[in-house]
């Protein structure tokens, strides 16, 4: 049996997360053999398919290019995946908002469980995944004939891009009378995507105001970093919620994570504690963030940040 990976894409571009999901698929393939196919579903997704064909380990790219799949609404995309599922023992997608939206729907329609946000493939049936905001790791074994799985990107290193897999079109067109796309407002940013950035600098309630988040800009520019935030900073209206790092926001695992004015609540740590190196800047030396930080600096962020920027 083979493995199907659902490609993640936005604005006609293949998203980096897909290469991580293929890496997880490779681990499953080591156990069961078979092929790894990628499904690219959307409208005008030729460039996405070309990019997907380059990913190492992929046998075939299947392209469903039709207006009904535009914006990857759960109802038509779910129906398409159900149509294709018969050829596969495993269906994998990134644990992105798209993957999380559609895969449970597919699993229920196939009467199987869905396994969320795996961080390790133990064997073809057994997977590790964080529970309780990452404060415990569960090993789960599925006896279902079809495994439907979302993959946490930070758990797997991306595969390379030296391949040239075959591309074939999928003619299946499903009906959708239940949902309609109205509009989309994406945050404009020149910085790297939060979930994929090598360096992340985040601000919390200690930043004091949205205006003060500008103090992070210069450092982020120098380090090529993405800017994140704690829930406290989002709730206080300092920054938009798509910047939130944590259990209910984005899960990141950059090489360097700098937490500024963040106390380090359980829910925030859930989103960043797999970072390679953590730096905490906080005036409260008792803040829990210092228990996970490799390097802590106790002091006033309004003095430290400009100094740090000047010394990088």
């Amino acid at each position: 049996m083979s493995i199907l990976v659902l490609a993640e894409h936005h604005d006609g571009q293949l998203a980096g997360a897909t290469a991580h999901v293929v890496a997880a698929a490779q681990k499953v393939k080591e156990a069961i053999g078979g092929d790894i196919d990628i499904l690219v579903a959307g409208e005008n997704v030729g460039a996405v398919a070309d990019a997907a064909a380059k990913l190492d380990g992929v046998s075939k790219v299947r392209v469903a290019d039709h207006a009904v799949y535009a914006h990857q609404l759960a109802e038509p995309l779910g129906a398409l995946l159900v149509e294709l599922a018969g050829d596969y023992s495993h269906i994998l997608a990134a644990a992105s908002t798209t993957g999380k939206n559609v895969l449970p729907r597919v699993a229920a329609l196939k009467d199987v469980s869905q396994i969320s946000e795996i961080v390790e493939v133990v064997d073809a049936d057994t997977f590790k995944r964080p529970i309780y905001a990452g404060n415990a790791i569960a090993t789960v074994k599925s006896a279902d004939s079809l495994k439907v799985i979302t993959v946490r990107s930070t758990g797997f290193d991306a595969v390379g891009e030296g391949n040239s897999a075959a591309i074939e079109s999928v003619d299946t067109v499903v009906e959708n009378s239940q949902s309609t796309f109205i509009k989309q407002e994406l945050a404009q940013s020149d910085r790297p995507e939060l979930a994929a950035a090598k360096v992340v600098i985040s601000g919390g309630r200690g930043m004091g105001s949205g205006e003060n988040f500008k103090l992070l800009d210069g450092i982020a520019d120098k380090l090529g970093a993405a800017i994140g935030a704690s829930r406290a900073a989002v709730d206080a209206g300092f920054v938009p919620n798509d910047m939130q790092v944590g259990q209910t926001g984005k899960i990141v695992a950059p090489v360097l994570y700098i937490a500024v004015g963040i106390s380090g609540a359980i829910q925030h740590l859930a989103g960043m504690k797999d970072s390679k190196v953590i730096v905490a800047i906080n005036k409260d030396e008792e803040a829990p963030i210092f228990q996970v930080a490799d390097y802590g600096l106790v002091g006033d962020l309004f003095e430290i940040l400009p100094e740090l920027e000047s010394k990088l």
């Binding site: 509009k183 407002e185 945050a187 979930a195 798509d242």
Partner: peptide
């Protein structure tokens, strides 16, 4: 209106 990666998306459902 749905919170998606990178922003917001609005869908209409029957």
């Amino acid at each position: 209106t749905r919170e998606i990666d990178g922003g917001l998306q609005t869908v209409e459902l029957t």
